[in-house]
């Protein structure tokens, strides 16, 4: 069962030997940095709230972009065949790729730790929501990576994979903000489906089992869906 770590290692290496990782990280930092600091001094509050408020929206584009190549590239190039003829199980492959995508997402977040550190010098920073926010960001990143992995498995085309993945993630992010369009009877369900809703809970520093269960179930469902898609490719 150590096999998945080899797959993960290779996928991570792939991110960093090609320009992908650096480009994605740079774009992510510019976008978040701009949105965050452009209003930061206006509000004059020592917290990261506006950073974490924006994060789901930014992640719903950036994370599928990270995940889009994981399967689509192998499928279009044919190297998927090599992968499947080596002694690897489906779970080795899926788990390895998922963790690589998640670690890459985590690598995006690492440089942003400079924000809370610099803010801590400017004012009284409450570290609780910050830690909660980063923890939530990892869960959110995990859920979106799993969705991106799924959409990457259904097509040979990376662009299609990105669009499908981003569309799903974007919907999950926005759905809890669009509730006034829907009849009252489905409001609770739709709100529960919203990734943004659960993430905002955690990023306030409240760790609730319902939010954890939400993120873990999205990950499990998406990874299982990936497995089912791959099973069809025989």
């Amino acid at each position: 069962m150590r096999q998945f770590s080899h797959v993960m290692e290779k996928e991570l290496k792939d991110y960093f030997v090609t320009p992908i990782a650096y480009i994605v990280i740079t774009i992510f930092l510019i976008v978040t940095g701009w949105f965050f600091f452009s209003t930061f001094f206006l509000y004059n509050q020592a917290n990261l709230r506006s950073f974490f408020t924006l994060l789901p929206l930014i992640f719903s584009f950036v994370v599928p972009a990270i995940a889009m190549r994981l399967f689509a590239e192998e499928l279009s190039r044919g190297s998927y065949e090599l992968l499947r003829t080596m002694p690897l199980t489906f779970s080795d492959i899926i788990l390895g790729k998922f963790l690589a995508g998640l670690l890459m997402t985590a690598a995006l977040l690492v440089p942003t730790i400079a924000y809370p550190i610099s803010i801590a010098f400017l004012g009284q920073l409450d570290w609780g929501p910050v830690v909660g926010g980063y923890f939530g960001a990892l869960l959110l990143g995990g859920a979106f990576t799993a969705i991106g992995l799924f959409s990457s498995a259904i097509t040979h085309n990376q662009i299609v994979a990105f669009i499908v993945g981003a569309a799903i993630c974007f919907t999950l992010t926005l759905i809890s903000k669009m509730l006034y369009f829907f009849p009252e009877s489905v409001l609770d369900i739709l709100q529960y489906l919203g990734a943004d809703f659960h993430f905002s809970n955690i990023s306030k520093g409240i760790i609730d089992s319902r939010d954890l269960i939400y993120f873990f179930s999205v990950i499990v469902v998406a990874l299982y869906g990936t497995y089912l898609v791959l099973l069809q490719k025989k």
Binding site: H6, E9, K10, T18, R77, S79, E81, L82, T85, P87
Partner: peptide, 25 residues
């Protein structure tokens, strides 16, 4: 197994690739 069109990871070095295969094997 050697597939028909030897589809490999174009970005990896030959050495890295063979090492990766060695690990998986």
């Amino acid at each position: 197994y050697l597939p028909e069109s030897s589809p490999f990871y174009k970005d990896l070095l030959v050495y890295d690739y063979l090492n990766y295969v060695a690990k998986i094997r």
